[in-house]
Design a binder for these strands. Structure first.
Lengths: 205, 205
DNA sequence: AAAAACTCTGCCCTTTTGTTCAGTTTTTTA
DNA sequence: TAAAAAACTGAACAAAAGGGCAGAGTTTTT
């Protein structure tokens, strides 16, 4: 196996930069234009060499059919853009585009493994007792059920609220941790469901 | 401007996932195959709607000519690995290698602009009153001075502690926010300095 | 010195892919 | 309830893009 030549490396770097910045690969002719190679076959030769040497992979008969190995991409592997949910529009799934107010990028290393996660901006001081302050960002792992006492993100009448979950027969109590606030009681048939449980808190001071 | 329909959102999510995982956009026909749309024009209508509503941009007459706004991509651009400081060895600067216990990667978007930042693992419940719990990670912006009442990371005898800063003549008081704890009083000449002030809190539940 | 790989040109062909036109049916909205 | 938008079908077309062939000069290897 021969070494990668300077010319090949130039072309590789161009392709890599192109993909990284534009999010799609160049065509053979676009590469040719960049390097003043008039024949598509000139570029093909270079790409074939790069493929033989393991730097790229060609996808046959596909427009813009060049792919880079995963190692070429900055390890945004476990970086995720979490949607921050604002008001939940009636009848829409939580993660529907129109409910997303903003996004926060963070590293999954501090999150549960599951990908079903979103964030809520905390409003009010009802959960002060648990160290959750007004303006904090609450990270929520989506799940339908919760255990007694867990902190859940509950959707009541289209508004998300963070409370302790206390089910009882025929009703559910949502308790604040700030004694200033009375529990919210949900009777059967009311417009209520659990969006998920608290998985983390982030505060900017 | 009408809302994004469920169908459009499905298609958008497919396109986004496709681009994020494969690093190139799908063709109109690939989208059609996925959703059982037999006419390329059916897909075109959907893409045109998504473009009108600002979710995507179409690149005319280009193979795989769909692009997403930058916000759709998790940017590893401003991801930093913050050092988590443990015990501070005598005579060493805070960020000296031997003081670093671990690192936590996170997005700078929730941090102050400065690059002089580190993290502390909170021990004890002395700052409960400010919603800072045992085990939380405190993000500290390095600076030597603080204003009265600010929460500072103070180094007392080589140990970092998080407290409210209350200077007075000839002494400094470090106050907890949990009334259970008495203030720490630092007289002049004692081994003490301010490492920085609190810039954020992160909690894994 | 010969073989192999590299770096192209030029031309042509095929496949892939985007675009346009002319409709239909259903849902949403003013 | 009429109009607009959504969500398609189907066919034809045009442009974009990949592939192949023949060849040639240059540089590396063996």
């Amino acid at each position: 196996m021969r070494k990668v030549t300077a010319r090949q490396l130039d072309i590789y770097n161009y392709v890599k930069e192109f993909i990284l910045t534009r999010k799609y690969p160049p065509t053979i002719r676009e590469i040719g234009d960049e390097f003043g190679i008039r024949s598509t076959n000139g570029v093909r030769d270079a790409l074939n060499a790069l493929e033989r040497k393991g730097l790229i992979k060609k996808l046959s008969n596909q427009a813009r059919g060049i792919s880079l190995p995963p190692s070429a991409f900055p390890s945004s592997e476990n970086i995720v853009a979490l949607p921050i949910i604002g008001r939940i529009a009636a009848g829409t799934p939580i993660l529907a585009e129109e409910n997303i107010e903003d996004t926060i990028t963070m590293d999954m290393s501090m999150l549960p493994r599951s990908s079903d996660i979103f964030a809520l901006r905390v409003q009010g001081d009802s959960m002060n007792g648990d160290g959750i302050l007004n303006g904090d960002i609450a990270i929520i792992r989506i799940q339908k059920n919760a255990e007694r006492g867990q902190i859940v993100a509950a959707i009541v009448d289209g508004t998300a609220t963070l409370k302790h979950y206390h089910p009882a027969t025929n009703k559910i109590e949502l308790r604040a941790s700030n004694p200033k606030y009375l529990p919210i009681t949900i009777s059967e048939g009311e417009n209520f469901y659990i969006a998920g449980i608290l998985a983390g808190v982030i505060r900017k001071c």
